[in-house]
């Protein structure tokens, strides 16, 4: 059992290295005067975006699923992205441009994500089943969408365009200067999750059970919400909303590892999430001579059927 998990961890790590190598050195060979600049300013940040966003989103999905006791939870379906998106819209559309800097974007997105996650968590205590919760997530997303539309009708076309572009989601937006920030946040998120392992394991059978096993459930819940907001919020700020990774990868991890040991799940989700997004981006690079695809189209093409399959299997 353990051996199998360790084998899977090692092989996914090797796959990740292989994919990253292909991404950076096989598919994006650049010649000419600019090649060095293009490598450091465009190609490396793009790979890092895929690695960090994949890792962070799937980890936040894992945390959400644990907190909500629901394998269909994830930062995207529960409207965590929408919360981040709403706060970013308010920032882009409503605040004086002087306040628009790196820090304000990320903190707005994280605040929005945290509030959305907390709201959904409070609501989840009052609804009986998965379906209702997902419908509420859907409603929440359309609610924030509506507010964004109203804000947009008052905004200058240029701001609307900026928001539109951001809302498409992209692995190519992050600059080399932003990369260390995003890396720090995501790595901090992963590291702090490792300290939650014991509580996460005990939470598998619900809050009451975890409480009996001596877990400080309130602290754990707040930590989960905080780390999720940190990860999903910052990734949304840097890359826009990226769908399906957060929902699909943790489910895939559980199915492959056949365990609820969150140390293994965290490590594997992080690796598999990175692998998934890098593989998607490799596919985009491969297809590039024929058609240029945005990242969310491919995550949806691959992720949506898998999620639909999971839903059907739930019955």
């Amino acid at each position: 059992m353990k051996q199998r998990s360790i084998q899977l961890l090692i092989s996914s790590g090797m796959l990740l290295l292989l994919l990253s190598w292909a991404h950076l050195f096989v598919l994006q060979q650049e010649q000419g005067a600019n090649s060095n600049l293009i490598f450091w300013e465009f190609q490396v940040p793009r790979l890092l975006s895929a690695l960090l966003a994949g890792a962070g989103l799937s980890l936040s999905g894992l945390l959400m699923q644990n907190l909500f006791q629901n394998p269909m939870a994830g930062p995207y379906v529960l409207g965590i992205n929408s919360g981040a998106s709403l706060f970013i819209s308010i920032l882009i559309l409503g605040v004086a441009p002087t306040f628009l800097n790196e820090f304000s974007y990320v903190s707005a997105a994280m605040t929005g994500a945290f509030l959305a996650a907390s709201f959904m968590f409070v609501v989840s205590k009052r609804v009986q089943n998965i379906q209702s919760l997902l419908v509420i997530g859907l409603m929440f997303a359309s609610f924030t969408g509506a507010i964004e539309s109203v804000l947009q009708s008052f905004a200058a076309p240029e701001q609307v365009k900026q928001l539109f572009i951001w809302n498409m989601g992209s692995l190519q937006q992050m600059s080399a200067a932003q990369a260390p920030w995003m890396a720090t946040i995501v790595l901090f998120g992963i590291a702090s999750t490792l300290f939650l392992v014991k509580g996460l394991n005990a939470m598998v059978l619900g809050e009451a059970h975890a409480l009996q096993l001596g877990v400080k459930v309130k602290l754990l819940k707040i930590s989960i919400l905080f780390v999720t907001a940190l990860l999903a919020g910052s990734i949304t700020a840097y890359c826009g909303p990226i769908a399906f990774v957060g929902l699909a990868i943790p489910n895939l991890s559980r199915a492959l590892l056949k365990t609820q040991d969150h140390l293994l799940l965290i490590l594997f989700s992080v690796l598999a999430g990175s692998c998934f997004l890098v593989a998607i981006d490799v596919l985009i690079l491969l297809l590039d001579p024929w058609l240029s695809l945005p990242v969310n189209v491919l995550t949806a093409v691959i992720g949506a059927p898998y999620v639909a399959y999971l839903m059907l299997r739930q019955r």
Partner: peptide, 14 residues
């Protein structure tokens, strides 16, 4: 299927 529906929403928008 609300979850699937919502996930497709972004795709459809796009």
């Amino acid at each position: 299927n609300p979850a699937t529906f919502q996930m497709f929403r972004s795709l459809i928008n796009f």
